[in-house]
């Protein structure tokens, strides 16, 4: 069986500040916090490097068992999510290390800025995933390891197949977290 892993990149839409405030646990902004967010966005500039790698896999569902050819995972919630699809896209997306550097920098120096950079990073990676999913699947619904009963260990399968380290510089830590941290892996039904 042959399978092609491809790379994509997108220019992201303008930042959705309402989403940023939501990720920063703030229901509203104040004059002061809005000024801080603007300062953070200026500092971030265009340092993000959004990239995605993905492959289209065959799919056979048998109960909770999802067989993608290259690997199988057992998850009734993933099976329900992909129900009726004959193929699935598996992808890994990251906005790169720049945002992690800023978060680290301000974790020590300014937790308020660190919080906002965390929130900006969360908004940006979701925007990247939305752009990718709309592009390849025409919809935005995706399913990631850790959702429902899909175990985080599925990360190992995804990384083995996509070679994320080599393709987009995305690595998996021992505790199955990803570095850079503003990254997502997921399945999308076709």
């Amino acid at each position: 069986m042959s399978m092609t892993v491809l790379n994509k990149t997108y220019s992201l839409p303008p930042i959705d500040t309402r989403a940023v405030w939501r990720y920063a646990a703030a229901r509203t902004e104040t004059e002061e916090t809005a000024a801080l967010l603007n300062a953070c966005l200026d500092e971030l500039g265009d340092t993000l490097s959004p990239s995605v790698c993905y492959a289209v896999l065959p799919l056979r569902i048998d109960g909770a068992r999802c067989d993608f050819g290259a690997f199988t995972v057992s998850s009734s919630s993933l099976a329900a999510h992909l129900n009726g699809c004959e193929r699935a896209v598996v992808f890994a997306a990251t906005v790169g290390v720049a945002i992690d550097r800023l978060i680290t920098r301000y974790a020590a120096l300014s937790p308020a800025k660190a919080l906002l950079f965390q929130a900006i990073g969360a908004e940006r990676i979701e925007a990247l995933c939305d752009a990718f999913c709309l592009d390849v699947a025409g919809h935005k619904t995706r399913f990631s390891p850790g959702y429902g009963d899909l175990p985080l260990t599925a990360q190992r399968n995804i990384f083995a197949v996509l070679q994320c380290e080599k393709r987009i510089g995305l690595t998996l830590n021992d505790s199955l977290l990803m570095s850079p941290s503003k990254s997502v892996t997921a399945f999308v039904g076709l």
């Binding site: 920063a24 646990a25 703030a26 916090t33 801080l36 300014s110 308020a112």
Partner: peptide, 14 residues
């Protein structure tokens, strides 16, 4: 009392 949110709390703390 949820009249101040986390970003403002942190700015004040800093």
């Amino acid at each position: 009392n949820k009249t101040v949110y986390l970003p403002q709390l942190l700015m004040s703390a800093e």
